[in-house]
Design a protein around this nucleic acid. Structure first.
Length: 726
DNA sequence: CTTAGGG
DNA sequence: CCCTAAG
């Protein structure tokens, strides 16, 4: 049970822009709760508990601590976010959004790695992978360590919202963990990994602290990320650099954290694969923090673009229900990449499945007593929140520790300025991908902790994408504007949720083959699919406050813009190149797709939309239809895969089955009277072509492979079809 | 994994 | 869109 929360600002993009930009100011806090109550160990079987049955039973954190056990793992993970802000228009609006996020600064605390070391007492383990909160470190016995560490509270949020300013926003991260214990398991390995970071902040948290994470699993290679933590108030940021080539950050405002490079060389070819570049940075001045995440995880088996469905399937149906033995060939396949991490039997897996996970409970960090509160509600949304459950802050305000639901609350605001509407929202928590952990029964609690930590760090450090869920539906189309998705509608904000999920590079729209190393898959996904869009450039990266030099978070010579911008642009270029290749490349559905999502009653969302979630509906735009028609005219109706590649190659969604289905409906649509048609009207001309092509290919049996090349019927247009077909 | 169809 | 049976 991890509680993970963060705050995100979503900037609405001008209507016609096809890019969805999210700027995430993310602070991660991960806490792992290992209280015996969990019963992880209790499970002998292969089934894994979905989550803590009863969190309430858990003992207060402090107690655990007292027991001398590591109560929680705290992890500061960096997550990347992309933000686009239009500088010009934003200028005016910035005033409002200015002090929005202060998350990182106060929210996190980094500790000395010494503490960690002290922590590692596990006989068998070399290093304790647990993260201790700063306070904890200092005062191991302190019960309130967590609390201190985390400055999470509604207050901050509120302040934030109110733009009061420097308030800290902190978030917690909730993770649902599944543990699988195999009796037959073998020895665990301890691979120390460490993440080190420095965070600065003016507030309560110690500035210049650094965090060291020891992750047994992670190899040096695994984490080759840079974590940049925002430095809000501190002038001096101290930077710990364990990484070989770390750059030092001198920026006053920024701090850079470098993720762990382990000294321990753990030879594993597989590790090489896991490289993360995580950037965690924030800008202090304008209060805009950017989290850049450049991570790429290959741990997961690459999924073909066409195959995401498969994964989905796996995740969704049978597998997820069955407690993950991972015996499944399929599932193992999916995760196979992960295995290398754990040499022997130890392994953890994370998958999208998580998202569908049901009844997982969320644990929230609580106040002074370090109590963990659980949120019973379906994991599905970060949306729902239960402030009431939260514990107060140390301030003893009665303010609930946790923020309200994501998007919910006053913090949301949309204003129309300069024609640019903005949506502001805060995210209470992120859902993190499910983790599968396998440890021997004989493993010690400490090793279990380490294992979890490893898994968590691996996941967080390397491969998460942010998912957007609206009304229980995943918003998969990154090209869609918030407006189009209906997010602009204030009333819907409550149903807006975010998830962290394993990245699926493969699904990325662009350069699926291999994303540029610089780019994070994250970025990938968020990039506008169509290069055509003039606005691409804009979108990318203009930091919300373009004027915020402070954002220089990156200590490197490069300024933040560069940091972010370059990669993105590069990618964009790549894309465009590709696009060029595929003349059929679809034009962003942007303008055409106006169809907002139906508004679903809030209640519905709770309804475990989490698991059997249907893909979000993405009506085909006219452009897409045209591309489809064109492709079918050329290729015929039996080669959907080819059609897909030809015209929708870079449309991450849109499987060939989708195309086939669409064609089916198009044919139907074309055959009915215009009055009976619904949805975005398809130009009659296109429908005519549909009929022509349909007729033509029906006769030519394009589907039959035996057939030789049938002439594409590009020739016809309109009325000529008949003739040709004959 | 693809196709083809039904739901 | 989903799901599945069939290549």
């Amino acid at each position: 049970m991890f509680h993970f929360s963060l705050q995100i600002e979503v900037v609405l993009i001008p209507p016609h822009w096809c890019i969805l930009y999210l700027l995430l100011h993310v602070a991660y806090y991960i806490v792992m709760k290992e209280s015996p109550d969990y019963g992880f160990l209790a499970y002998q079987g292969f089934t894994i508990p979905r989550g803590p049955r009863s969190i309430r039973k858990r003992r207060p954190r402090k107690q655990t601590i007292e027991d001398g056990q590591v109560c929680a793992f705290e992890l500061l993970a960096a997550l990347a976010g992309k933000l686009l802000q239009e500088s010009e228009s934003s200028a005016s609006s910035n005033a409002e959004g200015k002090d929005q996020l202060g998350i990182l600064g106060d929210g996190f605390k980094f500790e000395d790695h010494k503490a960690f070391r002290s922590e590692s007492r596990d006989p068998g383990s070399c290093v304790e992978s647990a993260f201790m909160s700063g306070s904890a470190v200092r005062e191991p016995n302190s019960k309130s360590s967590l609390r201190d560490t985390l400055h999470l509270g509604d207050e901050s949020v509120l302040k934030h919202t109110s733009n009061t300013t420097d308030t800290d926003l902190s978030k917690d991260i909730n993770l649902d963990l599944k543990l699988e214990i195999c009796t037959s398991n073998s020895v665990e390995r301890n691979l120390p990994d460490r993440m080190e970071g420095i965070s600065s902040k003016d507030g309560k948290l110690c500035d210049n602290q650094r965090m060291v994470v020891d992750d047994g699993l992670v190899d040096k290679n695994m984490y080759q990320g840079d974590f940049v933590a925002p430095n809000r108030g501190s002038r001096n940021v101290r930077r710990a650099n364990y990484v070989n080539n770390n750059t030092v950050i001198n920026s006053e405002h920024s701090v850079q954290l470098q993720s762990p490079l382990c000294k321990d060389p753990i030879p594993s070819a597989s590790f090489a694969k896991h490289r993360n570049n995580v950037k965690f940075f924030t800008a202090r001045d304008d209060d805009n923090y950017f989290l850049g995440n450049n991570t790429k995880i290959k741990a997961f088996r690459p999924e073909s673009r066409f195959g995401y469905r498969r994964i989905r399937k796996i995740l969704t149906s049978k597998y997820w229900k069955v407690a993950p033995t991972l015996k499944d060939s399929e599932s193992s396949d999916c995760f196979e990449g992960m295995k290398p991490f754990y040499h022997q039997r130890r392994s953890f897996h994370s998958s999208e499945r998580i998202q569908r996970q049901t009844p997982s409970k969320r644990v929230k960090l609580c106040n002074n007593d370090n109590v963990l509160a659980s949120d019973d509600e379906t994991s599905s949304e970060s949306i729902s929140n239960s402030p009431e459950k939260g514990v107060k802050r140390d301030n003893n305000d009665s303010t609930p520790f946790l923020l309200g639901a994501i998007g919910r609350s006053a913090s949301l605001k949309s204003l129309q300025q300069s024609g640019d509407a903005r949506v502001k929202l805060s995210i209470k928590s992120f859902k993190v991908p499910e983790l599968y952990i396998e440890v021997p029964e004989t493993a010690t609690i400490g090793s279990l902790k380490r294992t979890v930590m490893e898994a968590v760090t691996t996941i967080l450090g390397g491969g998460l994408d942010v998912g957007v869920v609206l009304q229980g539906k995943k918003m998969r189309d990154d090209n869609r504007t918030l407006q189009q998705a209906g997010i602009s509608d204030c009333s819907n904000l409550e149903t807006l949720g975010f998830t962290l999920e394993p990245c699926m590079n493969q699904v990325a729209h662009f350069s699926p083959k291999k994303p540029s190393p610089l780019l994070s898959q994250d970025a990938d996904q968020r990039l506008p699919r169509s290069p055509d869009t003039p606005n691409l450039e804009l979108g990318l990266l203009v930091p919300s406050s373009s004027n915020d030099p402070p954002t220089t978070k990156i200590g490197k010579p490069v300024d933040d813009k560069l940091e972010l911008g370059l990669p993105l642009r590069a990618q964009a270029e790549a894309c465009s190149g590709k696009a060029v290749k595929d003349s059929k490349a679809l034009v962003p559905m942007s303008t055409l797709n106006v169809e907002p999502l139906a508004v679903v009653p809030l209640n519905q969302k709770c309804k475990r939309s989490e698991f059997s979630q249907r893909r979000t509906r993405r009506p085909f735009s006219v452009n897409e239809v045209e591309a489809l028609v064109e492709a079918v005219e050329t290729l015929g109706t039996g080669r959907w895969r080819d059609v897909k590649m030809r015209a929708f190659d870079n449309a991450g969604h849109r499987t060939y089955v989708d195309l086939k289905d669409k064609w089916k409906t198009l044919v139907h649509t074309a055959s009915i009277s215009p009055q009976q048609r619904r949805g975005e009207p398809v130009p009659q001309q296109l429908l005519d072509r549909v009929l022509c092509a349909h007729g033509y290919w029906s006769q030519h049996q394009s589907k039959q492979h035996g057939k030789h090349h049938v002439e594409p019927l590009k020739i016809f247009t309109d009325g000529q079809a008949e003739r040709v077909g004959a």
